[in-house]
């Protein structure tokens, strides 16, 4: 039914998404033990991060302008982002390379929906849920101790959303380079390694690092800016910058994908 296939727009994408995710979750639930392992890992990772932060604060040192609880908010947002990437980014974008390698990208391109959408949302993995939960718990715990109001939480959602979009776009562009370089799995590892910097507020770094993590790899926009919004001390310029960045990166990711596809020589042709 061509009208139905090509006309549905947004609604059609939503129903496709529901199908994708229900099958993916059904498949993942076959491995329930993995979920336990993911929870334990997530808990261990959080404990380790807290320990790492504690090593600084136990000496009486503070990241400039960031008390213990405030630094916890940053760590909570970082954990949240980790959960997000484990839920959506890793299971989808890190598989683009397999599609290229095995030539199955052909089938994706033939489907009557946006190939970028298909590649970015085909699978959802419940493995990120523990990280999402612990991240939220940490944020709410620290937020309560700091007396963060509902309005501030809601305000921080705006830069957080921008941050998620930026993160997705960067990750997708790196994944898309696998059109040229097949063994690219580790490009995203490089990005992930650099994103680790988001565990700490950007003020904790020396000047050169701050410049790098704001303008080259926008880590500052991913965790520090949303945290500052939550603490009610963000300047609107930063939120605006964050929004601008996400729009630019998202658009670039679209252009980049179209550009990359021109170089795709499929397995069958």
């Amino acid at each position: 039914m061509p009208t139905c296939l090509f006309g549905g727009g947004m609604k059609r994408y939503l129903s496709v998404l529901r199908l994708f995710w229900s099958t993916a979750i059904a498949a993942e639930l076959e491995y329930r033990l993995n979920f336990l392992i993911a929870t334990l890992s997530s808990l261990g990772s959080l404990t380790g991060s807290l320990f790492g932060l504690f090593l600084f604060y136990r000496t009486g040192y503070q990241f400039q302008g960031w008390g213990w609880e405030e630094a916890l908010v940053v760590l909570g947002i970082f954990t949240l982002l980790q959960g997000f990437s484990a839920t959506l980014l890793v299971p989808n974008l890190n598989k683009i390379v397999t599609q290229v390698q095995e030539g199955t990208l052909d089938f994706v391109l033939l489907k009557p929906i946006s190939s970028q959408f298909w590649l970015s949302s085909r699978v959802i993995s419940p493995w990120g849920v523990p990280d999402l939960t612990f991240g939220l718990v940490l944020i709410v715990y620290a937020g309560n101790r700091l007396g963060v109001g509902l309005g501030a939480y809601l305000l921080s959602l705006i830069p957080l959303l921008f941050g998620l979009i930026s993160l997705y776009s960067l990750w997708f562009m790196l994944g898309a380079t696998s059109i040229w370089f097949v063994k690219i799995y580790n490009v995203t590892e490089v990005l992930r390694g650099l994103l680790e910097a988001g565990r700490f507020p950007i003020a904790a770094y020396p000047v050169a690092y701050r410049v790098f993590f704001t303008f080259i790899i926008p880590v500052a926009f991913l965790t520090t800016v949303p945290a500052e919004a939550m603490l009610n001390r963000v300047e609107w310029g930063w939120i605006l910058g964050s929004g601008l960045l996400s729009v630019i990166l998202l658009q670039s990711s679209k252009f980049f994908w179209r550009f990359a596809l021109r170089f795709y020589t499929s397995a069958s042709s």
């Binding site: 600084f56 690219i184 580790n186 490009v187 590892e189 490089v190 992930r192 390694g193 650099l194 680790e196 910097a197 700490f200 904790a204 770094y205 020396p206 050169a208 690092y209």
Partner: peptide, 16 residues
């Protein structure tokens, strides 16, 4: 080379 570059974690902590 990418694997080498992905080991940047110590360099990040170095800064802090």
């Amino acid at each position: 080379l990418l694997w080498v570059l992905s080991g940047t974690f110590p360099l990040i902590l170095m800064g802090i």
